[in-house]
Simulated assay, not measured.
Amino acid sequence: MAFILVVDDDSEIRDVIHIYLRNDGHEVLEATDGIEALETLSKCEVDLIILDVMMPHMDGIQACIKIRERYSTPIIMLSAKEEDMDKIVGLTTGADDYMTKPFNPMELIARVKSQLRRQNLLKPKITETNVINIKDLVIDETKHYVSIRGQEVTITPLEFGILKLLAANPGQVFSADAIYETVWKERTGYSDNTVMVHIRNLREKLELVPREPQYIKTVWGVGYKIDKYEVTAKT
């Protein structure tokens, strides 16, 4: 069972999602806009957020930005827009997945399960200590903690998964498909921009000059890597 927050100004859509989530064994909280969602999150701990884009008062994009300032909770964004740019904006602001309306409720439930499964897989084992140092970057798997130049960085579970994958395999180049299949735990079949957007988000948070990355390097035409000589690990 998971606690899931559904944020949408359309009561009929909230009701449908609520019913399917409850039938799948989850507890459901509801909010009608971004402001109410933030108020709910300040009072209750949730495992996943389903967030509509088009809402009054505070829309989903603004809400996602505010949520990511404090929480790493997985976010599935909903929107009636289908253009690739809208999907990129949603992912860039910190969403973990994106669905367009109208959607099949069973597909939404499948994506909810996928996000919750990843969240559990990315949670560290309490009995293990795994700290990786890369120059001024520290990745603590046990605490799910990342810092750069002595400052803690808030990253999403998927961003953490990508960073951990590259740092734990220094020198190895991972294609976008390999990163997706390893971190998302699914076969490829996604927009080509998905991994790229998450890599870009990581660079924005970690790099002094994102266009000249010192940590996550691009191997043109192949994929991404962290140089081997830069990494030291403590277990």
Rank of each mutant, 00 (worst) to 15 (best):
Val146Thr: 10
Ile148Asn: 11
Gln151Pro: 00
Gln151Ser: 10
Gln151Ile: 10
Glu152Gln: 15
Ile155Trp: 03
Ile155Gln: 09
Thr156Ser: 15
Thr156Pro: 10
Pro157Tyr: 10
Glu159His: 10
Phe160Val: 07
Gly161Ile: 07
Gly161Ala: 12
Leu163Thr: 07
Leu163Gln: 12
Leu165His: 03
Leu165Phe: 01
Leu165Thr: 13
Leu165Ser: 12
Leu166Glu: 12
Ala167Ser: 15
Ala167Pro: 10
Ala168Gln: 15
Ala168Leu: 09
Pro170Phe: 04
Pro170Tyr: 03
Pro170Asn: 09
Val173Pro: 05
Ser175Arg: 01
Asp177Thr: 15
Ala178Asp: 14
Ala178Arg: 11
Tyr180Thr: 01
Glu181Asn: 08
Thr182Met: 04
Trp184Ile: 09
Arg187Tyr: 08
Arg187Val: 04
Arg187Ile: 01
Thr188Asp: 05
Gly189Ser: 09
Ser191Met: 01
Ser191Pro: 09
Asp192Ala: 14
Asn193Thr: 15
Val195Ser: 00
Val197Leu: 01
Val197Gly: 03
Arg200Gln: 09
Arg203Asp: 11
Arg203Leu: 11
Glu204Trp: 02
Lys205Ile: 10
Leu206Val: 08
Glu207Leu: 05
Glu207Ala: 01
Leu208Cys: 04
Leu208Pro: 02
Pro210Met: 04
Arg211Asn: 07
Arg211Leu: 08
Pro213Glu: 00
Pro213Tyr: 04
Gln214Leu: 06
Ile216Met: 02
Thr218Pro: 09
Val219Asp: 14
Tyr224His: 14
Lys225Pro: 00
Lys225Glu: 14
Lys225Phe: 12
